[in-house]
């Protein structure tokens, strides 16, 4: 057996067209692999389209997609190493008992860890002798979590699939994800629009909006990069001239803006002297500012 090498991902100018609508519109990024990536985007931003192409669920319209240096579509060397669990909680037979599904998965995926799957199913209290169609939404999501983690695929993707679980189950999922990743480091991509809860699981974060990449960075760097600036409108405008301003709102003569970028000590001192108040910005706020109505901002 070759040693487990993380699968890098290269995406260049990726397009996916549904008739007149471009779900992905020239998306480009590259991931070194072996990390837990957060894929953030609003509903309809193209998250699911991107993951579907990576998992070879659908064919791209144009552009380049390489996983471990190879095109994934209809390439069994890649697809055997990739697992995508979709929103509904994974693609499985509805009229089949859980214990059989796990056995089937073990037959179809050489890397599937059946013992681990049984252990996880027990932790999520899944009724092994019941059919999938008799499961609650939360149990369906938990089944997706089990299938995804136990698949042991070198690229494992969860497309908001865990959101159907209640809070205790979601936390159990986060625990298992970290334990699994620590023991067997590989590439995970987790898409979400509920950021606060999962952001700390990520090492890097990608934000896509309208089928394009808005941001890709180390999540810790992103956290230190958003700065809110509050003060008299003219002073704020002077200070933020030349900085990347994401949004702004005014209340009387006071203006509050969110700046993206690291301020150095000189800038911070200058801000203090000018009577401006600087504050941190959460990843969630930053996400909202980066993806929320940029047109309205440009007009201001």
């Amino acid at each position: 057996m070759e040693p487990p090498v993380s699968l890098g991902i290269e995406v260049r100018d990726l397009r996916l067209q549904y008739g007149d609508v471009a779900a992905l519109d020239g998306l480009s990024f590259s991931l070194s692999g072996g990390k837990i990536y957060g894929l953030l985007g609003r509903n309809g931003s193209g998250k699911t389209s991107l993951l579907s192409i990576l998992a070879a669920f659908r064919r791209k319209t144009s552009g380049t997609v390489h996983i471990g240096g190879q095109e994934p579509f209809e390439n069994e060397r890649v697809t055997a190493e990739v697992c995508l669990i979709r929103e509904s909680g994974g693609d499985v037979y509805d009229n089949t008992r859980l214990e059989q599904l796990l056995r089937m998965a073990a037959d179809l995926r050489p890397a599937f860890d059946h013992q681990y799957a049984l252990k996880l199913a027990d932790r999520f209290q899944l009724p092994m002798r019941k059919n999938v169609q008799s499961l609650s939404r939360g149990q369906r999501s938990a089944l997706g979590a089990v299938m995804g983690l136990a698949a042991n695929a070198r690229l494992t993707m969860f497309d908001e699939s865990y959101l159907g679980m209640d809070a205790p189950s979601r936390y159990a999922f986060y625990d298992e994800l970290i334990a699994n990743y620590t023991e067997n480091p590989r590439t995970f991509i987790i898409s979400t629009h509920l950021i606060e809860e999962v952001a700390r699981l990520f090492e890097e974060v990608l934000i896509i909006h309208k089928g394009r990449l808005v941001l890709h960075d180390d999540v810790e760097a992103v956290r230190s990069r958003g700065v809110s600036v509050i003060g008299p409108a003219e002073v704020v405008d002077t200070f933020t001239a030349g900085l990347t301003v994401l949004n702004g709102q005014s209340l009387g003569r006071t203006k509050a803006v969110t700046v993206y970028g690291t301020l150095d000590d000189d800038q911070r001192r200058a801000a203090a002297l000018a009577g401006l108040e600087l504050g941190p910005v959460s990843l969630q706020d930053l996400f909202v500012h980066l993806t929320g109505q940029p047109e309205a901002e440009a007009a201001r």
Binding site: A55, A56, F57, E74, N75, E76, T79, A80, E81, V82, C83, L84, R86, G90, D91, V92, Y93, M104, A105, L108, R109, A153
Partner: peptide, 16 residues
């Protein structure tokens, strides 16, 4: 309509 989607989701190519 039933088996093909499930097997593709389990890493089997359409050709296989």
């Amino acid at each position: 309509t039933v088996n093909l989607p499930v097997l593709v989701a389990h890493g089997i190519t359409r050709r296989l």
